[in-house]
Computed example of a mutant assay.
Amino acid sequence: MSNNEILNYLKNAKIEANVLKKICKYFTEDYTAIQTAQNLNLSRQTINNYYKIIRNLLLSKEDEMLYMIKNTHFSNNTLLIKYIKNGPYINYFIECQKKAFIFKNNENTFPNLQKFIDNTIHLPLQNNKKANAAKISFNKKENKFTLLYLTKSDDTIQGFIQNRLKKFRGLNKDSLYLHLKESQFRYNYSQDFLYETLLSLLHLKKSNVAYISTLKQAPSLVL
């Protein structure tokens, strides 16, 4: 479902704006769908529907932010590529200045980077018990990545995500990715920023000036 389809769905939904704001508030405070449903006297299915909408909107916003950072700051710098293990799934992400940006195999934001990971980094990292990250360099002129060395990085982001996901049971692969992206957003930004972002995405506030201001202060990919 595209963002426009989501917004059209919300326009026709039988839910008042103040109730939707409360759903956003509970979501921001990381309430489960069951908890939010009980507090608002709504069905769990209703809350699950809105939670899924919120997660999809956050996913598109995270991709937009990553794309902006790439175009404004991604130059001849070194990057740290790490991976998160969640059961049988492995997701790679860029880590910079205590922020993490997860990406999937089919994303086009860094197409050459994904190919580089698949061909150069994946197996060495999986076979190295002491390393969980790869330091690489990027030559913007040649659009080329080079592996510098494997290294051990702190597991702050992985610990944060795994602790969050403990409360959810039976996540399939598609749901897992949405939860990973949500966890990424929560790791990178404060609850207040998350709430204001949701209000802006759902057109529940008059201005998104605060959000635009934060985007302008996005960190460069310099380690």
Rank of each mutant, 00 (worst) to 15 (best):
Y189V: 02
T214N: 13
Y211D: 11
G159M: 11
L198Q: 00
L199W: 05
K166E: 14
L180N: 04
L198C: 05
T156G: 10
R169C: 05
L204I: 02
N208W: 05
L202D: 02
K166W: 09
Q184W: 05
L180Q: 05
E196H: 12
R186A: 04
E182M: 11
A210I: 10
K216D: 15
Y189L: 03
L201V: 01
S175M: 12
Y195M: 01
L204S: 00
Q158C: 05
R169N: 14
S213W: 09
K216P: 06
L201E: 03
A218S: 12
Y187D: 00
I161C: 04
Q191H: 13
S190E: 13
F168Y: 15
S200C: 15
D192V: 08
L180V: 04
L201N: 01
L201Y: 01
Y195H: 03
Y189I: 01
N208T: 09
A218E: 11
E196N: 13
K166I: 10
F160P: 03
H179N: 08
Q158W: 08
D192F: 12
L178Y: 14
I157D: 06
H179C: 02
K166N: 12
L201S: 02
K216Y: 13
Q162F: 12
F193H: 14
I161Q: 03
F160T: 00
F193R: 06
L178S: 06
Y187H: 04
N163W: 09
L198A: 00
G170V: 02
G159S: 13
N188S: 05
N172D: 13
S190T: 12
N163G: 08
S183D: 08
Y177C: 00
L198K: 01
K216E: 15
L204F: 04
D174V: 13
T156A: 10
I161W: 10
T197W: 07
L171D: 01
F193C: 01
L202W: 09
Y189W: 14
H179G: 03
K205I: 08
D154A: 01
Q184A: 05
V209Q: 15
G159K: 13
S183P: 09
E196Y: 11
D192N: 14
L199Y: 06
E182F: 08
L178Q: 04
L194C: 12
K205E: 12
S175R: 14
Y211Q: 14
K181W: 05
A210C: 07
A218N: 11
I212C: 04
A210Y: 10
F168A: 00
L204C: 03
V209E: 15
E182C: 00
K205M: 04
L215D: 08
I161D: 05
N208G: 12
R164L: 11
I212Y: 12
H179V: 03
D192C: 04
Q191F: 13
G170Q: 02
T156E: 15
L194I: 07
I212A: 08
K206E: 15
Q162T: 10
N172W: 11
Q162G: 03
E196P: 06
H203T: 12
R186G: 06
D192A: 01
L178C: 05
A210P: 07
F168Q: 04
L204W: 08
D174Y: 14
A218Y: 10
R169M: 09
D155R: 11
Q158P: 09
L171V: 00
K173Q: 14
A210M: 13
G159V: 06
D155S: 13
R186Y: 15
N172L: 07
I212V: 14
Q162D: 12
